[in-house]
Design a protein around this nucleic acid. Structure first.
Length: 593
RNA sequence: GGAGUCGUAGUUCAGUUGGUUAGAACGCCUGACUGUCACUCAGGAGGUCGCGAGUUCGAGUCUCGUCGAUUCCGCCA
């Protein structure tokens, strides 16, 4: 098909191009028909340019009158200075007076109007994703995403990393997330798995001597979804040989510095602050603390302070080995209604109620528990929190981790309700020294907290031989997360490269030699041939982009995302397949009850 | 697997205590209009109230089930 090809995009013409003869190609975004004069806003991904048609050019005028929304056209004409300037768009000083117009394609009336502030529901937007993607605000996310790809590739190339593609069809491995399975036609009854991450391959590449590996890759996890979890997502996966934790941190910190510098024009600190897992849990009640909250609002352990009080709830908690702890809300008016709301909130986590102390301006303390606490204790609580007038301290008592976690959730809720989070900040923090194992009382067994190849810290190696649950739980690992604004954006570890340590770890999670050999035999065998000390990390790329774009969900950082039930509304997948396809695979569908 | 919210015109929503012909805005169609840029003005078309049962003389409205979207917990690095 012959048509007049564009000489410019719809975003670049300005007053400097005055009197030039140009051709634009794009979509009809808006038509304003004044009866004689006719204006058309022509859109492409670069911007919008106003076209002007006058009735004197009868053929062009008649064609232009027929244009509907989202028609694709080629428009030629002369760049003129506008009589009235539109300051809202970069091309607002000029317009094109048309000398030729071609309709390249018509469009049906779109199911929703394509404009920046979209009104359609998620469902409709996903069904017509190609239309949604025409919106500037959405297109911009992908421009940022593309910038990030380029920066990342350049950065790792500069630091001597080799980008290697690893298989998408791999062996299903136990532990961790549920695999997406792919049936094998050639091997009847056998399955491949889509990678949850290229973990094993990248470690084997270290054995191969690749030394520094990176890959921007897709990963798949068949688990229930959230706003920040899609069934398929993208990681920047990296691994390095002959390194310790600090070396990995340095590379990652450098990468974030370049991304933020180039995309946001922001200088991040050279080094990100570090916090132990234990400190994160006891101060923020979570392993992903959001450090943007004004006043920090750390959890304070009041267990010692309230010892000897008359308050049965506290004493019961302490007697059963629990704790009493609280957080402070600074200088906010806290009404009865707010307290009731917060009480309901903690009740959902299984607490009987929420204690509080309101330090009034007149020096009095308002609290339902004040009659059980003597003046000394109240004064000490005030000191523990450095509480001043019009501050409120919220207190919970019970099992230690539960108290910390619920106070952590309360902290986030208070920050949200009272607008205490500085949304303009980017607060990075390394959370380090994670536990190696997690004990599940239900199954009476240990699970690897990160993954089974994580190296214990040297000082805990002896506990690998322990039979004591507490000792084993106390083992800390060379394992780290990078948290940004309360989101986990990186997870990584230094790996086990010694077969004897690996064997002990398998032992603790209850994997026998035979099972280990069956499931991980190939990597264990590889490790017998001189595995270098190595470690790495995986960056949640979609989450980074979401944060860079100021989005709460990763959905709009992904061109064709899936819903929370893992379907794609546009192409209607997953879908049934023919009996022939199933027969070839030797698969029969059993109705799930 | 569990809890919450939502589902009414092409779209976003309103719809009183269960009661006559289910409304508005935007979009769409027709007409008028030569400096608009959310053009304006006049007129018009457009409804399986997600789907299925039930209660009732009568259901958009109440009950149960179901499907879909979404948020959170469990799950997941």
């Amino acid at each position: 098909m012959n048509f007049s090809k564009r000489t410019h995009t719809c975003g670049e013409l300005n007053i400097k191009n005055e009197n030039e003869e140009v051709t634009l190609n794009g979509w009809v975004s808006k038509k304003r028909d004044l009866g004689g004069l006719l204006f058309i806003d022509l859109r492409d991904r670069y911007g919008i340019t106003q076209l002007k048609v006058i009735p004197e050019n009868k053929d062009i005028y008649d064609t232009a009158l027929k244009l509907g929304q989202e028609y694709v056209i080629s428009a030629s004409g002369k760049v003129l200075k506008r009589e009235s300037i539109n300051k809202n768009i970069p091309t607002g000083e000029i317009e094109i007076e048309l000398t030729a117009i071609e309709i390249l394609n018509e469009s049906e009336v779109p199911p929703f109007v394509i404009e920046d502030d979209v009104k359609a529901t998620d469902e409709l937007r996903l069904k017509y994703r190609y239309l949604d993607l025409r919106r500037k605000s959405l297109t911009e996310n992908f421009i940022i995403r593309n910038q990030a790809y380029q920066i990342v590739h350049k950065y790792f190339e500069k630091h001597n990393f080799i980008e290697v593609e690893t298989p998408m069809l791999m062996k299903s491995t136990p532990e961790g997330a549920r695999d997406y399975l792919v049936p094998s036609r050639v091997h009847n009854g056998k399955f491949y798995a889509l990678p949850q991450s290229p973990q094993i391959y990248k470690q084997i590449l270290m054995v191969s001597g690749f030394d520094r590996y990176v890959q921007i890759c897709k990963c798949f996890r068949d688990e229930d979804l959230r706003a920040d979890r899609q069934p398929e997502f993208t990681q920047i996966d990296l691994e390095m040989s002959f390194v310790g934790q600090d070396d990995v941190f340095e590379i990652v910190e450098g990468m974030f510095n370049e991304i933020w510098k180039e995309i946001k024009g922001i200088d991040l600190p050279d080094k990100f602050i570090r916090m132990s897992y234990d400190a994160a849990m006891s101060s923020y009640g979570t392993d992903k603390p959001d450090l943007r909250i004004s006043g920090d609002m750390k959890i304070v352990n009041l267990t010692e302070t309230v010892k000897g009080s008359e308050f049965k709830v506290f004493n019961d908690a302490l007697e059963s080995g629990g704790i009493v702890a609280g957080i402070k809300l600074s200088s906010k008016e806290v009404s009865r209604k707010i307290i009731d709301g917060l009480t309901d909130f903690v009740k959902k986590s299984g607490f009987g109620g929420l204690g509080y102390l309101k330090f009034n301006a007149d020096g009095t303390v308002q609290s339902p528990v004040v009659k059980f606490l003597n003046e000394n204790i109240i004064e000490n609580i005030r000191k523990d929190f450095s509480a001043e007038s019009s501050d409120t301290v919220f207190i919970l008592s019970g099992e230690k981790m539960k108290v910390f976690q619920t106070l952590g959730q309360l902290r986030l809720k208070l920050a949200e309700d009272f607008g205490l989070t500085d949304k303009s900040k980017y607060e990075f923090v390394w959370v380090i020294d994670f536990p190696l194992f997690r004990y599940e009382a239900d199954d009476k067994r240990f699970y690897a907290e990160h993954h089974v190849f994580t190296m214990p810290k040297d000082e805990y190696l002896e506990f690998l031989d322990s039979k004591d649950i507490n000792e084993i739980e106390s083992i800390r690992a060379n394992c780290y997360d990078l948290v940004l604004n309360g989101h986990e954006v990186i997870s990584g570890s230094i790996r086990i490269h010694k077969p004897e340590i690996q064997k002990k770890v398998f032992g603790i999670i209850g994997l026998s030699d035979e099972e280990a050999k069956m499931k991980f035999g190939f990597i264990l065998e590889a490790f017998r041939y001189g595995a270098p000390p190595h470690g790495g990390a995986a960056v949640g790329f979609d989450r980074i982009i979401a944060i860079l774009c100021g989005l709460n969900s990763i959905t709009d950082t992904i061109a064709f995302p899936k819903t929370l039930k893992a379907s794609s509304l546009m192409d209607e997948c997953p879908s049934e397949v023919s009996k022939e396809q199933l027969d070839e695979l030797g698969i029969e569908i059993k109705q799930k009850k």
